[in-house]
Nucleic acid binder design. Structure first.
Lengths: 155, 155
DNA sequence: TATTGTTATACTCTATAACTATA
DNA sequence: TATAGTTATAGAGTATAACAATA
């Protein structure tokens, strides 16, 4: 029994990996400090929250604590993030972005967005509007999937 | 100078990694033989072309030959693909999907599409139409990026 | 000499299991 | 005992560089 959301699902599975591969290549390849996508997202999150913990990063990215730990390790090792102790609870980390981190993040975002823009320039106005609407809707749908405690819905 | 494609580009960079993370988790996590996304795409391509070479896989996925080689290695090791020599040109491989490979591929696709459908079920009809249109447009735009010889446009 | 694929090596990303330190 | 984070280990996925075999 085909549902109205089946065709969109098929299309998503077809298109998203291709777009992702492009984003990844841009992120890694584009000059200077090649940031991976998860590194980039971690920087964005740490900057936005200012002083988040390791657990915060893990939750936000949907990672296990060891994965988040290694990810942050890499960023600290490259001087893009500082890892400090919290005063009240000495188990807890206080992660902050450094000026170089902020610079690297902005550079990576700019480069990647410019590359995406270049490609999207081939689309007509109606297609561009569809892309914006679709991305907004997908962000909502998949954001709600991670926040409410679950991790993978009804496991 | 902001162009009409800049906002869509920003949204793509925001939404696509989140969706991709979900797809990846479904692919890997869902029962039996957990296929990774690139493994899945490789199976799809090998089945579709029937007897493609390593270079064909590398081009299609946008990978370097060593990466494609390792990817195929894994699939051969798990009995999902056979690697034979070509009769005319003995440097060239002839890759074929096995029955188990076809089964694994179909299972992974079904599971993942069902999971995606479940999430997309939360969207209204207008949003679903936008998703379908957007994915079709993105597929075209990013497919043309890889085929015409380049790999990364004006490098 | 050019093309096809492979091996060696290395790095990122991710997970599970076992551990430490603090609460 | 429970929580925050780390270390150890392992495997997928990717790249570059150096190589082998074939054309």
């Amino acid at each position: 029994m085909a549902k109205r959301e089946d065709e969109p699902a098929r299309e998503v599975l077809d298109a998203v990996p291709a777009v992702m591969r492009f984003i990844r290549a841009q992120m890694r390849g584009h000059r200077a400090l090649g940031l991976g996508v998860p590194q980039f997202r971690t920087l964005v999150y740490i900057e936005r929250t200012g002083g988040t913990s390791l657990g915060g990063v893990a939750d936000h990215l949907g990672l296990t604590p060891p994965s988040a730990c290694k990810l942050v390790d890499g960023l600290v090792g490259r001087g893009l993030v500082t890892r400090g102790e919290s005063a009240e609870d000495r188990r807890r980390l206080t992660l902050e972005i450094t000026p170089e981190g902020a610079r690297a993040m902005a550079a990576a975002r700019g480069e990647t967005q410019r590359s995406l823009s270049r490609i999207l320039g081939a689309l007509d106005d109606e297609e561009l509007r569809s892309v914006t609407r679709a991305m907004t809707a997908l962000k909502c749908a998949f954001a709600e999937e991670r926040s409410p405690a679950n991790g993978n819905h009804r496991a």
